[in-house]
């Protein structure tokens, strides 16, 4: 970026006057390796010790598959719900002025700041059949707490800020003149939103969706209190890891862990691809 003139000699880093590269880079890489990379590679190493057949038998165990499906499915569903409502929230926060807007804006970050266990017991109490919302839903014959729907409710709570906080800054940057131009050319308001604004917001929406989903697949604390945790019905994959560990079945825990880690890497790759595509196409990431 800064170096347009490159010497023919291969440099690991571009020369400059600022000191401290060795110290800061060295410390950062050592700490990163010790705390994150070595422990994570230990997980992969353990699973490779199992051998492929044993690993596959553990990973394709029906209870494991069911748990992964439940985690994945609820994460997708929650991210979809959050995309719709997150967009509305971001829109209202950016476009409308109303008293208390700053407070509402700050509250959106609550799921980032509130411990997941607290969110879990609060949501479980709210949506339980005798809870404030649960009792009301029960009148209509809906049961949320202690069913798979409860998982989705918890993941909606956890994922909301991801969509709002990725869409909001992009929406703030939108040039209002584009909308005016579209309006002078006779486009209706709905057309403008649908065909002028939404395409520009798409990369942010997709990024937020993928981030909310990645978080949802791995989420544990807020879900276990509300889910009911019945194997094959409402047992999420992270909980299955905990159960296997409590049984001292480290091999099975490792297998589920590796599958989940692979999904995380895949999601990380997808998020990076979306952002690269967005930078290329829209000039912002």
């Amino acid at each position: 970026m800064t170096a347009t003139v490159q010497s023919s000699r291969w440099h690991f880093r571009e020369p400059g006057v600022i000191p401290g590269f060795r110290l800061t880079f060295g410390f950062a890489v050592c700490y990163l390796s010790l705390v994150i990379l070595i422990p994570l590679s230990g997980l992969v190493w353990h699973s490779s010790n199992l051998g492929w057949d044993a690993f596959w038998a553990l990973a394709s165990d029906p209870r494991t598959i069911a748990a992964l499906k439940i985690s994945f499915g609820s994460a997708v569903l929650a991210a979809l719900i959050n995309t719709v409502f997150g967009l509305v929230v971001a829109w209202v926060l950016v476009r409308y002025r109303f008293p208390g807007r700053r407070i509402v804006d700050a509250v959106v970050d609550l799921p980032f700041a509130l411990p997941t266990a607290v969110a879990g017991i609060a949501l479980a109490t709210l949506y339980a059949p005798n809870g404030m919302i649960g009792a009301w839903l029960a009148d209509f014959g809906f049961k949320v707490a202690f069913t798979p729907a409860g998982i989705v409710v918890a993941l909606v709570f956890i994922g909301l800020p991801f969509i709002v906080r990725t869409v909001q800054p992009v929406l703030e940057e939108v040039d209002r003149e584009i909308e005016e131009a579209a309006a002078t050319l006779g486009a209706s308001r709905l057309d403008i939103v649908r065909r002028v604004l939404l395409p520009g917001l798409l990369p942010a929406i997709l990024t937020g969706f993928a981030m909310a989903m990645a978080r949802g697949i791995g989420e544990y604390g807020s879900v276990i209190f509300i889910a009911g945790n019945i194997p094959y019905v409402s047992e999420i994959a992270p909980l299955l890891i905990v159960i296997r560990l409590e049984e001292f079945n480290y091999a099975a825990a490792t297998a589920v862990g590796v599958v989940m880690l692979s999904i995380s890497f895949l999601m990380l790759l997808i998020i990076n691809l979306i952002q690269a595509w967005s930078r290329g196409r829209f000039g912002h990431g």
Binding site: I36, P39, L40, G42, L43, H46, A214, R215, I217, G218, E219, Y220, G221, A237, P238, L239, I241, V242, L245, Y250, A253, T254, G257, M260, L261, S264, F265, M267, L268, I271
Partner: peptide, 16 residues
């Protein structure tokens, strides 16, 4: 990376 790894896995790696 730690943001996209499940918290349970963060614990699991240290157990292993």
């Amino acid at each position: 990376l730690p943001f996209s790894v499940s918290p349970v896995i963060s614990g699991l790696v240290y157990v292993l």
